[in-house]
Design a protein around this nucleic acid. Structure first.
Length: 319
DNA sequence: AATATAATCAACCGCACTGAC
DNA sequence: AGTCAGTGCGGTTGATTATAT
């Protein structure tokens, strides 16, 4: 189509609006409504193109605009919405009363992108960052070791797990590991058996028995299940896995993640998060237990989507 | 205090979409 | 069905402000 001629009219003013111009625009719209944006500037006595007037009004002068810092709740909502809708700023804005698409876009590009990157999350895909260097750096967060190949349980210990970011990094790291049968950039010794991915990461060598003589972990061999995925049953420790992902605080200082895996496929069968003081236990309390043929950590990531308890939101994304 | 660099965000540009004719 | 005006949207720019050196 032919572009609006006002865009080429060099006699029209551009750049920042003066208070006088703002006043003229607000006065006019309050008295008459905006009507046709193209004709508005002339009627309002403004030497601007209609587009500029519309932008100024919708992004700045509208009376219902909420200004100031984004709340944590708004931040969470933006991340969740963005994970589903992508860069659909105007649609995201419909879920944040008083915020404009432009404001949300700016906020995303200047704050949230950076924040997610620091958390090890790709802001475009909302999945763990794939670059190897980052993942290798994460390994520095992990200490402890691989133990008990015989009972097929891998233990990780995370120092100072009070730091939410570390927990998220751990989740993301594990997801990356579970999705990777051959860890990128790490030499795998010749032979028919893959190294257990976690061991590759930590540059340890697998014992033969882990891969050849070990019975598969079977669900019936494992402790009984907690009924709901993601719910940890000790409220004093942790409200829920979902809550953790959305920023609730953890109060314990050390966690053990027990990960029971199918030794043939490497797929995790379930995970337990238990405080370090209970590390000797493989019991069922204080536990996030999962059983799934799919990667349960995918469920963790997917749960972000499910956290939006808003009918209009779901209607929106089904469109 | 002066300067350089980074962060912020209002505003612009141009393409896409919609509805009237 | 095609054209066009009006409007919406998302990416980008660049002026301003904040922070670091």
């Amino acid at each position: 189509m032919v572009r609006s001629p006002c865009c080429f009219d060099s006699s029209l003013k551009k750049g920042p609006w003066t208070p006088e111009e703002d006043e003229k625009l607000v006065d006019y719209i309050n008295r008459n409504g905006h009507g046709s944006w193209r004709t508005l500037p002339k009627l309002a006595g403004l030497n601007r193109c209609g587009k500029s007037c519309r932008l100024r009004w919708t992004n700045y002068l509208r009376p219902d605009i909420k200004r100031g810092k984004f709340s944590e709740e708004e931040e969470r909502l933006i991340v969740n919405l963005h994970s589903v809708l992508g860069n659909k700023w105007s649609r995201i804005a419909t879920h944040l009363p008083g915020r404009t698409d432009n404001e949300i876009k700016n906020f995303w590009n200047t704050h949230m992108r950076k924040k997610l990157l620091q958390m090890g999350i790709d802001p475009n895909t909302h999945k763990p960052r794939a670059d190897l260097n980052h993942l290798l750096n994460l390994s520095a967060l992990l200490f402890g070791n691989l133990t008990s190949p015989w009972n097929n349980i891998v233990k990780l210990q995370l120092a100072d797990a009070t730091h939410l970011t570390n927990i998220r990094l751990l989740h993301n790291l594990l997801q990356q590991i579970m999705n990777t049968s051959t860890f990128p950039g790490v030499t795998v010794s010749a032979g028919t058996q893959n190294l257990y991915p976690l061991e590759q990461l930590l540059n340890k060598t697998a014992t033969t028995s882990l891969y050849t003589n070990e019975p598969f972990a079977r669900s019936e061999d494992l402790p009984s299940q907690a009924p709901t995925i993601g719910v940890i049953d000790n409220a004093n420790l942790w409200a829920s896995l979902e809550g953790e992902l959305l920023g609730l605080n953890m109060e314990n200082n050390n966690l053990i993640m027990n990960s029971c895996c199918d030794i043939q496929t490497g797929n995790p069968l379930r995970h337990q998060l238990v405080p370090a003081s209970n590390s000797s236990s493989t019991g069922t309390s204080m536990v996030n237990q999962m059983e799934s043929n799919a990667n349960p950590l995918n469920d963790v990531v997917d749960s972000w989507d499910k956290l939006i308890d808003d009918d209009s939101f779901w209607k929106d994304i089904q469109e």
